[in-house]
């Protein structure tokens, strides 16, 4: 509230000096805000939901504004698992998120894309192209090795053929510790 008041006061002062000057001020709290997007794929592989909740929780605790983007079914799985929002902060529709990024309305610091099929590769490539910020593909499912070999664009990869047991991927995510970046 204090920053907003100061920003408006400064803008008013500048426009008084010269009405044609358009001033963009980034207040300290906006400039320092870290935003991460977790992009969920099709929720048919069980490990995805728990890993998204886990990573969202770690990123949230590290001070990131954490946005989970997914299909309605994927978001419902998260919402039911965390009804009071202890681990999650914000959820968005996947298509709406892509639209916001394409229209440069959603600045992000980094993103994580959960991938277990060809569609997931498409979304990871799209996130890399639209944000031009670090993208990590978290690859899982029985075709993890094949999917990994098909990634030809720049991104970090954390992969394990996990289906039901999230622990191997959890360990690999902890080794990468993206929340410390």
């Amino acid at each position: 509230m204090k920053f907003l008041y100061q920003k408006q006061s400064i803008e008013k002062s500048i426009s008084y000096i010269h009405p044609n000057i358009i001033l963009y001020i980034t207040m300290p709290e906006e400039r320092d805000r870290k935003v991460t997007i977790l992009v969920m794929g099709c929720p048919k592989v069980p490990v995805q939901t728990s890993l998204v909740l886990y990573l969202a929780h770690r990123m949230k605790n590290a001070g990131y504004q954490t946005i989970i983007a997914g299909t309605p079914a994927a978001r419902q799985l998260i919402r039911v698992a965390d009804p009071d929002g202890h681990y999650i902060m914000e959820m968005k529709d996947l298509d709406a998120t892509i639209a916001a990024l394409a229209e440069e309305k959603l600045p992000v610091t980094n993103s994580f894309v959960f991938v277990h099929n060809d569609a997931g590769i498409s979304y990871a490539a799209t996130m890399q192209s639209l944000t031009n910020k670090p993208v990590t593909a978290i690859i899982f499912g029985e075709e993890a090795e094949q999917v990994t070999s098909e990634i030809t664009f720049p991104c970090s990869i954390i992969a394990d053929p996990a289906i039901h047991n999230p622990m191997p991927l959890k360990r690999k995510i902890e080794e990468a510790a993206p929340w410390d970046a």
Binding site: D95, I98, A99, L101, A102, I121, S122, Y123, A125, T126, S129, L130, T152, F153
Partner: peptide, 13 residues
């Protein structure tokens, strides 16, 4: 990626 056609943002590699 993100190009808008028919009011749809296209995703892909």
């Amino acid at each position: 990626p993100g190009y808008r056609m028919f009011d749809i943002h296209i995703v892909g590699v």
